[in-house]
Computed example of a mutant assay.
Amino acid sequence: MTNSTPSTTFIRDLYARMLLTRIVDDCAWRLHEQGYIDFVASCRGHEAAQVGSAVCIEVGKDFTLPYYRDLGVVLTIGMTPYEVFRTYLQMHIPQTATDADQELHPARRGEPVLHWGYHKRNTVTGPAPVATQILHAAGIAFASKLRKAPIVTIAYCGDGATSEPDFLEGIRFASLQQLPVLFICEQNCQTDADIPSSSSCLKDLPLPEGLTHQRIDGNDVMAVYMATRSAMEHAREGRGPVLLEMYVTRSRAGSQAYYLSSTLGRNDPLSRCQQFLQEQDMWDDEWAKKLYTRISAEVEQAMQDAMRDTQPPFSRRGDRAQP
């Protein structure tokens, strides 16, 4: 972790935001398993990288370009669980839907990808092609620089995006123009044993001059927060673009024991944050249990409300809802 420790309230808030992300993600998986939605790109294991970075964004001022797995980012900058579930549910085309139903929702056809968008928080809807958001972020940052606005654009991607030409062209342009932009790459390491020994997903790329690059333990929410805060200040002060490579360990959804570290992997973001809180004498079991109970109830209600408001009678695969 870090030697410079923020307040207990702030760190507990980070933990709560990661817990919210985990519970929403698991509920989305539940909807998928029950046939209500077609596609889920789990962010389990990415919570620290997403929440720890997104809390540094000046919401409504800075621009955010998330990628399809960035549930924790959109929740942190203001999207509600209800809005998240509506996004999932509105993508689904029931098997019993008619051609006319599908024509009403042409965006649902083709490869299923979550296009997070939230205009009132300056969140730019991501395209389906991988890595093109990097180019879009460079363009937005260029416009901000021309307008002399103290705005930072932050763009997220997965390690698969780094092999695309759009990625390299985007960071090259940002470096050449010394743009106020932060790129965050969430690199998935297959197992705990891979961290931090795994090789960088950028090792074969010729990173341009003028780009500040740093590797971060993406399972450590405090390390992510401190690195992102510094990077945002760097970009906002006109010192050029920053690329933060955050290595994470993606894991399967399903566990309900969120606040019991003994049930989580050693690099699980929630477990790591809990351990840090315990070391700093900031952890309280009763607080954690009440937090889990409250967030679970709120998310469950949001999911039920979203289903009520979006699902037609034929919404479940192969079934019709009973009257």
Rank of each mutant, 00 (worst) to 15 (best):
T5W: 05
S7I: 11
T9L: 13
I11W: 11
D13K: 12
R17Q: 14
R17A: 14
R17H: 11
M18T: 09
L19H: 09
R30K: 12
L31H: 02
H32G: 03
H32S: 08
G35R: 12
G35T: 10
A48F: 11
A49W: 06
V51P: 04
A54R: 07
V55L: 07
C56E: 11
I57Q: 06
V59W: 09
D62C: 12
D62Q: 09
T64L: 14
T64R: 06
L71D: 11
V73R: 07
T76K: 10
I77Y: 09
G78V: 02
R86H: 05
Y88D: 04
Y88I: 09
Q90K: 14
H92P: 02
Q102W: 00
L104Q: 11
H105V: 11
A107D: 12
R108S: 08
R108N: 14
P112G: 05
P112H: 01
G117E: 12
G117L: 01
K120G: 03
K120M: 14
K120E: 15
K120H: 15
R121K: 15
T123L: 15
V124I: 15
T125C: 10
A131D: 04
T132E: 12
A138N: 12
I140R: 05
I151F: 05
T153I: 09
I154L: 14
C157Q: 09
C157H: 03
G160L: 11
G160F: 01
D166R: 01
L168G: 02
A174N: 03
A174V: 00
Q177G: 00
Q178P: 02
P180Q: 02
L182T: 07
N188R: 09
C189I: 04
Q190M: 07
T191P: 05
T191E: 12
S198I: 07
S200N: 03
D204R: 00
P208A: 00
P208T: 00
L211E: 08
L211H: 00
I216T: 01
N219R: 05
N219T: 12
V221H: 05
M222G: 01
A223L: 13
T228K: 11
T228N: 10
R229G: 09
S230P: 04
A231P: 06
M232H: 05
E233H: 03
E233T: 11
R236P: 04
G238C: 03
R239I: 00
V242E: 08
L243P: 00
L243I: 00
V248W: 06
V248N: 10
T249Q: 14
R250M: 11
S251R: 14
S255N: 09
Y258L: 15
Y258W: 15
Y259G: 10
Y259M: 15
L264M: 09
G265M: 03
D268G: 08
P269H: 13
Q274F: 03
F276R: 15
L277G: 08
E279P: 02
W283T: 08
W287S: 09
K289F: 07
K290I: 11
K290D: 14
T293G: 06
R294I: 13
A297E: 14
V299W: 12
A306F: 12
R308A: 14
R308I: 06
R308N: 14
T310F: 05
Q311C: 15
F314D: 13
S315L: 01
R317Q: 00
G318M: 05
D319M: 14
D319L: 15
R320A: 06
R320H: 13
